[in-house]
Design a protein around this nucleic acid. Structure first.
Lengths: 157, 157
DNA sequence: GTTGAAAGAACCGCTCT
DNA sequence: AGAGCGGTTCTTTCAAC
């Protein structure tokens, strides 16, 4: 589907990953092409879905969430659909994946503190019918992965 | 540290999470305040670190990465620092965390296909001295968590 | 992919409460 | 301190090439 992604597109993606509020003018200057050319390329990347969205990355800890964690979840496979719908409604969950391996589902969650974590695990998540087990991995430190990715992208074309 | 985050700020964060390229004008219209007020609030949120950055969210699959996975990693605790530095250099890793529980480190990775996954696990990650075990959880499906978060945020103030 | 002109948005100093 | 107003500057948009 991708209409051929070239070096300029990869650089564009790198810039937008680094700062999605960067102006077209600045990108154009950085890349040595004109503003409309940048606009056209970005539109293409948006249309073919390579750029999913532009988002502000929030520091949940500074917002008052003391606990950020991964929670591996096992579920009754016969009730998968209903369970996932229920889980998606839980406010604490900020990311959700179906995965292979020891857990069926992986969630990334935020809670105010240890007590609200317990409440979440015991009553909210644990209360969903068909959830058979949860395993909590509290994030102690998050590393910043800046760009770098561009190198790899280049080698893939 | 937060200079009191109010409802308007939470809504602002929700809007910026949904689309970080939204113009100040549009946010001002949505929130019923003036553009300078929005600008002032956003600056505060950036300065106190609640907004970490603005980023384009990439669809790695559409970019040609067939495999997206979590990898739980166990390491020799005596060599933690050097190991983390080495791991951070690996291009396949797009997110990296230190966590509690069964694994010491959790990585989110992307590779082109199963073969490059094997190569990554065996030689690149597995080749880092002090990495004692890896456990791969391939992401089969990713769910979209839109806003909703705003509700929870409101209840926290 | 470029140019140029018109519309629109962001920025700055000033004002008001 | 926080919010509004208006004029200048910069950015985006969209035509035609």
């Amino acid at each position: 589907m991708p209409n051929k992604i070239d070096e300029v597109d990869f650089t564009l993606l790198r810039l937008l990953r680094k700062n999605s509020r960067m102006s077209l003018t600045e990108m154009a200057k950085d890349l040595g092409v004109t503003v409309p050319a940048i606009k056209y390329r970005i539109q293409k990347l948006e249309q073919n879905g390579i750029i999913k969205k532009y988002s502000a990355i929030i520091d949940y800890e500074k917002l008052g969430y003391g606990i950020i964690a991964f929670v591996g979840i096992n579920i009754d496979p016969m009730k998968r659909k209903q369970i996932m719908e229920k889980i998606l409604e839980l406010d604490e969950i900020i990311e959700l994946y179906e995965i292979t391996g020891e857990y069926d589902v992986m969630a990334k969650i935020v809670t105010k503190d240890i007590h609200s974590l317990r409440e979440f695990l015991t009553f909210k998540l644990g209360g969903v019918e068909g959830v058979t087990r949860t395993y909590t991995m509290i994030i102690v430190k998050e590393f910043d992965i800046d760009d770098r990715r561009n190198k790899q992208w280049k080698s893939m074309k």
